[in-house]
């Protein structure tokens, strides 16, 4: 096991100048980074053919640490850059990593349209229910009643369920995991990357600094314990009532469907156009 960790570190992390990383000790982002690397390693993907694009935020800092083709784009826009990359070179494996604010507030429109369009991209969304990088302002996933830097009296808006939103918007593969359920996370990310079509992996994570502290949720371990206690599998959730599911985290694969592949459709159009001209 330690040798494997050594090998993964050696093979996938950038060694020049990048560490120590910018994240707070105990932040869930590091766990996601580990899961992403293990997933990619398990699929034996070529690093040259991998593109990891992010937006802006704590989650958005991830690409700089890994030895792929990496892109740190603008806040909310990772999927738009990824769309251009994938269309220009469909042989690339294009992944994005985004925060909840990044993906569903400023980037919300791009997110639903990417899901609808069903281009073969993988979107990893680290949902820590808050704007971490800018200091704990509420995000579209901050729960009703929570405290935030911009919700001193308790939040009066209602949260998005990102995975369910992705299903409705038309994504081919949608899963939810948490930073507590790590082996499952490795598997979900690998499945998402392998899937032809738009895949979303929502990952419930802890921002104990900007969210947990304000809401008296304890240290990272306590917060992760909370994810463990609240989690129910998709299969189990199907047997529970809405009241029973209140405040639970449904984990596993929410949807996995096959739809016409965008780049293949595009090729068909090119063939028709060539015949006509």
């Amino acid at each position: 096991m330690p040798e494997k960790v050594e090998r993964l570190r050696h093979d996938y992390l950038r060694h020049d100048k990048k560490f120590p990383h910018v994240w707070c000790p105990g932040c869930g982002n590091g766990i996601v980074l580990g899961a992403l690397i293990r997933a990619i390693d398990s699929l034996k993907l070529e690093k040259d053919e991998l593109v990891l694009a992010s937006g802006i935020g704590c989650a958005g800092r991830m690409p700089v640490y890994v030895d792929f083709n990496t892109l740190h784009t603008t806040h909310g826009r990772a999927l738009t850059f990824a769309t251009g990359i994938k269309l220009a070179n469909p042989s690339l494996n294009v992944l994005t990593v985004m925060g909840d604010g990044d993906a569903t507030a400023i980037g919300g429109n791009h997110f639903i349209h990417a899901a609808r369009r069903n281009l073969d991209l993988t979107a990893i969304i680290i949902n820590n229910q808050i704007y971490g990088m800018t200091g704990g302002q509420y995000s579209p996933t901050t729960p009703y009643g929570s405290k935030a830097a911009t919700a001193a009296y308790g939040h009066i808006e209602h949260a998005f369920s990102i995975a369910e939103l992705a299903v409705t918007a038309g994504a081919s593969f949608v899963a939810r995991g948490t930073v507590y359920h790590v082996p499952l996370l490795d598997k979900l990310i690998a499945q998402g990357i392998s899937k032809k079509g738009f895949s979303v992996i929502e990952i419930i994570s802890n921002c104990h600094i900007q969210y947990g502290r304000r809401n008296k949720m304890g240290d990272p371990v306590t917060m992760m314990q909370g994810f463990k206690d609240r989690a129910v599998t998709v299969e189990k959730a199907a047997t529970l009532s809405a009241e029973e599911l209140h405040d639970r985290i449904t984990i596993g694969v929410l949807t996995d469907v096959d739809k016409p592949n965008y780049t293949e459709e595009l090729q068909k159009i090119r063939d028709i156009a060539k015949d006509k001209s």
């Binding site: 694009a53 892109l71 784009t73 603008t74 826009r77 999927l79 738009t80 850059f81 990824a82 769309t83 251009g84 990359i85 994938k86 269309l87 220009a88 070179n89 690339l92 429109n109 791009h110 349209h113 595009l266």
Partner: peptide, 23 residues
């Protein structure tokens, strides 16, 4: 490739992405 994006922000992002990929 032609693509009609969801807005001009996305259009500009896609243009940059495609150029980075060599087109």
């Amino acid at each position: 490739t032609f693509i009609q994006m969801e807005d001009e922000i996305a259009s500009m992002g896609a243009v940059i992405g495609a150029s980075l990929a060599g087109v």
